[in-house]
């Protein structure tokens, strides 16, 4: 009844890898857009807007992603909305990523020395111009390492998508492991796949950092 761990299984796991990469892209894009908004709200001079963003970050960072996903998928039904798994994932992951990226980028913006801002004002630049031309380019360099670190984490977190019925890499590994009873081989293969996706990202981040430094 049990099968040998074979190429067919590896191919099946590759389809799971496809889902993992797809989910990660959705999370990265959705999270980056919402995260920029949160970061900008957080550095706003209007205390209400800033507090609102801070409250959002507190709530989402303090909630496990698995719970957010459960609420987005199963909870929505109780409000009379039927959600497709992929929609629930896009919403939950974007909310989640926005809270972390918003805080990382807020930190990066605020860690640009105050003198830069004052200098820009002295030259007659407005708030928006200062932010776009002076602050953000410097903040980007500071933000790259923690951002990539978070992206790598996010890719691995997509394994939670199996609770809403998406057969991504970890779920394929579970299925194959239970059909072959070879957990060690199967999970090592899955680990290798995750590494192949995450490692290049780390390399790109290093390259970017170097280029922006010089």
């Amino acid at each position: 009844m049990f099968q040998q761990f074979s190429l067919t299984h590896v191919q099946f796991m590759l389809t799971g890898l496809g889902w993992t990469i797809g989910l990660a892209m959705i999370a990265l894009i959705g999270g980056s857009i919402a995260g920029s908004a949160i970061a900008l709200m957080r550095v706003s001079v209007n205390p209400v807007i800033s507090r609102l963003a801070q409250f959002y970050i507190f709530v989402v960072q303090g909630t496990p992603l698995l719970v957010t996903l459960f609420i987005a998928y199963f909870g929505a039904t109780y409000l009379g909305i039927s959600v497709q798994p992929i929609v629930a994932i896009a919403v939950a992951f974007s909310f989640y990523a926005a809270a972390f990226l918003g805080d990382i980028w807020r930190g990066a913006i605020q860690s640009v020395p105050k003198g830069q801002r004052e200098g820009a004002h002295a030259l007659g630049l407005g708030r928006a111009d200062t932010l776009i031309h002076i602050i953000v380019p410097q903040a980007v360099r500071i933000a790259i390492p923690p951002t990539v670190g978070f992206f790598v984490q996010l890719i691995k977190n997509t394994s939670l998508a199996s609770v809403v019925g998406i057969v991504e890499l970890t779920r394929t590994a579970q299925i194959v492991s239970n059909a072959t009873f070879k957990p060690l081989e199967v999970y090592m293969t899955a680990a290798a796949f995750y590494f192949l996706v995450c490692f290049p990202l780390t390399l790109v981040s290093r390259g970017l950092e170097k280029r922006l430094k010089s």
Binding site: M1, F2, Q3, T8, V176, S177, N178, A179
Partner: peptide, 14 residues
């Protein structure tokens, strides 16, 4: 659940 042999699982063609 497709990860609970022999109740739910995948065959050689997945």
């Amino acid at each position: 659940s497709l990860s609970t042999p022999p109740y739910g699982m995948t065959d050689a063609n997945m």
